[in-house]
Design a protein around this nucleic acid. Sequence first.
DNA 1: GTGAAAGCGCTAACAC
DNA 2: GTGTTAGCGCTTTCAC
Lengths: 329, 329
Amino acid sequence: MANLAEVSPKTVSNVVNGYVHVSPVTRKRVQRAIQELDFRPNRSARNLRRGSTGIIGIIVPELPMSYFAELSRQLLMAVEEHGRTLLIEQTLGDRRREEAVIDHLGDRFVDGVVVSPLAPHGRAFAGRADMRFVFIGERPSGCSADYVGIDNVAAAREAVTHLVRGGRRRIAAIGIQPEPCTGTPLLRHTGYRQALAAAGLPVDSRLEKGTARYHLREGAQAMRSLLEEPDAPDAVFCFNDALALGALRTLHERGLRVPDDVAVMGFDDFEAAEFSTPNLSSVASDKAAMARSAVRLLLERIDVPDRPAREILIGHTLRIRESTEGGLS
Amino acid sequence: MANLAEVSPKTVSNVVNGYVHVSPVTRKRVQRAIQELDFRPNRSARNLRRGSTGIIGIIVPELPMSYFAELSRQLLMAVEEHGRTLLIEQTLGDRRREEAVIDHLGDRFVDGVVVSPLAPHGRAFAGRADMRFVFIGERPSGCSADYVGIDNVAAAREAVTHLVRGGRRRIAAIGIQPEPCTGTPLLRHTGYRQALAAAGLPVDSRLEKGTARYHLREGAQAMRSLLEEPDAPDAVFCFNDALALGALRTLHERGLRVPDDVAVMGFDDFEAAEFSTPNLSSVASDKAAMARSAVRLLLERIDVPDRPAREILIGHTLRIRESTEGGLS
DNA sequence: GTGAAAGCGCTAACAC
DNA sequence: GTGTTAGCGCTTTCAC
């Protein structure tokens, strides 16, 4: 005990935790002792006693995907505003790892968790009534937990409508997920089809490309596959920016001009969208607002565990850049 | 206690921790009880008792910089191999936040920390004899802690030599840091100058551009500033890939061809380098190996706190792509 | 305003 | 092979 050095057993605690009723003299004395012994309260002990850790977790698929990295930074700042620490975990899109992570975090190790799952995942949370969590951006199907996100259907519809207005008629989509999926990819797919329908354009399943992941490589590959079809598209709507940049690369390799021959639209508006050649039109969402809302929701739930689930929708904006600029000649 | 349900007080502990000397019958009984009560050992209590948390921290400037995101993923996997958890913290390049993070992690909250500081920072570790840490990629000047990195001088020299071999004569550098800096930027600057010297090329300080950060925006800006000089460069060596992609963008805007008019070389070889237009030559390092080495070093240090500091250098490779392909005509 | 003592939930020595 | 017990370092009633 640090008090051996000077005075008392719990007056130390009072000082450390900034209690009011400590005489200035005693406080000074204790502070000097703390300095001298370079005393640091043991976090594990404090956590045990307090029954909470002050840590908010975030679970993302993988940080090297810009969207999740950006989300993590915004969340760090949001969590910091409330004096909490952020613990970042990655599932690497792996179901086994996802379960391990949840299990890990579940052991009263974090006060709550913000989860940004991949669409086909996230089901592992169902059984965890003991955990406080809120989903951000994406949520597992049929899950009635707190949620913060954007209106994906509307956003996708607006993006594709923008392509239609530019005179595009054969508009492809990259990033479709196979049937059982009901998350964001399905919503964006739905918005895409709504926009086509509104424009009186037919659905052509050869223009709808699925991808295993949402990385650059898969975008490039999907674009190659689109160009092998007899009737090439004159526009591509990609479900995220990485896919779009990959598509851009393929178009460049094939000698097609963007946007003259093919327009390309992304989603998420990451930093690199502004600097690619040509730079990329995309759907921007206010990630700082999403992060703040998610943290607020989570803290409320920690406070009142049985509060009914809520859902917050954040606005989005179309950012038009060179990759879709100007209509078809 | 879960044993109320069935049997014993610490036999539970034995079962949970996979001890050997437990009769199969008892084990079954306990496991059933655990199932039934959905029992989860309290991590804080375990940590307190054990005196360690099994958590390895990593401190990076910010995750949205691809290099650090990739490092975090590699570190996650390396740490996982040893049954540890990774806790990621971001300083956002802010000195105040850096100190807060260190203080936070210091309270016996992590068993050790891998630190990837920005060059001008990282000094806050000096006074923390109580913490176990290893530096990765970068280290504060005059610090004799464990370190894993690459030979930055040699890597930069090779990169610039490659430009020289392509017939480039006015080779600029982007990413220089102001004088007091002694870290990676200085090493790359040194390698750059060595290559120039070896080729008999003069140093031209107007070709050496500093940047406040290492983001796309700063790269674009530095390139603009280079093009305002009377004698434009015929090649640019950027201290990371984001700067290089930013430079690429500016060159495109000014109607200059890459690599015909100007060759561009990056550093770090992030995923996007392969997919830009034109795609980007860069210096690749084995980040998985760096992460593994860092974790090994750290675990050793946790084990033997007063072991002399060690230094591990990881190999690097030049990845030549379109942005520097072919010599000057 | 300050000290004494109990206990958070777990683990490891030790006895049986 | 299993039960008993003490104690990790802190916080917090409760007396004084």
